[in-house]
Amino acid sequence: MTGRRWFAVRETAPGVFLIAEPGHVNSYLVLGDDLALLYDTGMGIGDIAGEVRALTSLPLLVVNSHHHYDHRGGNASLLGVARDFAVHAEGAESHGAPAPREWLESYAHIAHGLREKYQALRALDIEAFFLTDSRVEVRPVPELRRWRIEAVRPTRLLHEGDTLDLGGRRLRVLHTPGHSPDGLCLWEADSGLLLAGDTLISGTFFAHVPGADVPDFAASTRRLAELPVRTALLGHNLRHRESGGFVVDVAEAFAAVRDGRTRPVVATDMFGTAAWRHDFDGFAVFTALRATTPGSPEGAGR
């Protein structure tokens, strides 16, 4: 399967392109006058390098929002294309290993199941609701027996407050732990644009997996809610774009989870892992079952 059939690409803000693997992960290409920045590289299933080069010939800086495989899967395809691979210094060592075969096989199974569920939803939708959008439908899954996510060593380490100058636009690095210790967002003050990675998503937040931390999530999202966000671009799900009001809602939700002010139920994530599920208006939060009180610090790892 070619990259063009796997990715859904469109301009989502001035000079910013969504490069989505619908139902899986969202990456974003930001164009400056002198430099392009690719925020995350996706699953490594399609040819994201080809997608980038179809949009720009500018020198390229790759920034990974965090070290998880689904956000750095395309790094290897960009070797020889990207000038630098930049990550938060907190997670540099976590980029040193490829994705294990067990994880790839598990995710391949999930991807096929996701496509089947989407087809069933789409069939019902066509009959009555007309809510889905064929431009961003969950794609058929290609043959994945040779799928690999290779390790690519970072060439640049980022820290809180660093400025990335693309020529004509400047993005500031925000260290936002919570989903993972090395999480980072990029903030463009001039436009009110926030590239959020997995610090903000429109589905279920994974605050129950090793490395995640609910109090950190609450602090990071509260910090983002204090910014004058006009547009937040999210790391997952078909609903990839939200306003500043959504950021405030997420911050309030994580404060409620942290403080034990929710009534969670036991549920399972896409990998079959049991967790507490805290539901809110338009999204949910998973926290670890081992917490003595749902949402307490000792139960909030990824």
Rank of each mutant, 00 (worst) to 15 (best):
R53M: 04
A108N: 07
Y118G: 08
E93R: 05
L61T: 08
V138T: 09
I45V: 13
G73F: 13
D84T: 07
Y69F: 15
L60Q: 03
V62L: 14
A82H: 01
Q119I: 13
G44Q: 01
P100D: 11
N64F: 00
R115M: 04
V138F: 05
T56S: 07
P140S: 11
A49T: 01
L131Y: 13
R101S: 12
A97Y: 07
H95A: 03
T41V: 11
L31M: 03
H67F: 15
G96R: 03
H95I: 00
I126G: 13
D40C: 13
D84I: 01
H68P: 02
G80L: 10
K117Q: 15
G74Y: 05
H71S: 07
Y39R: 04
A82P: 01
V138M: 08
V136W: 01
A36L: 06
K117H: 12
H95E: 04
L131V: 11
R148P: 02
R148C: 12
H67P: 04
A97E: 06
D125M: 09
R115N: 12
L114I: 13
A82C: 08
G96Y: 03
E127V: 08
L78D: 07
T56F: 03
Y28W: 10
E90T: 15
E51Y: 03
V63P: 00
A97F: 04
H68Y: 10
D33Q: 15
R146F: 11
P98W: 12
A36I: 09
E127Y: 05
V141M: 13
G91P: 14
D133W: 08
V138H: 09
R115A: 09
E102C: 05
W147T: 02
A123G: 00
E143S: 11
V63W: 00
Y39K: 02
G74K: 00
A128K: 08
D133T: 04
F129G: 02
R122P: 08
A86W: 05
H68G: 09
L78A: 04
L79F: 09
A120E: 12
E93N: 06
A76I: 07
R145I: 05
E102L: 10
E105C: 00
A99P: 04
S106F: 05
R145K: 14
G46W: 00
A36S: 09
V63I: 08
A108L: 06
H66P: 02
I45D: 01
V52Q: 02
Y118I: 11
G96F: 03
E127A: 13
A99H: 06
E137T: 06
L29W: 01
I126K: 14
E102Q: 03
L78N: 10
L38S: 02
I110K: 12
N75D: 15
V81Y: 09
G73C: 13
D47R: 06
L114M: 14
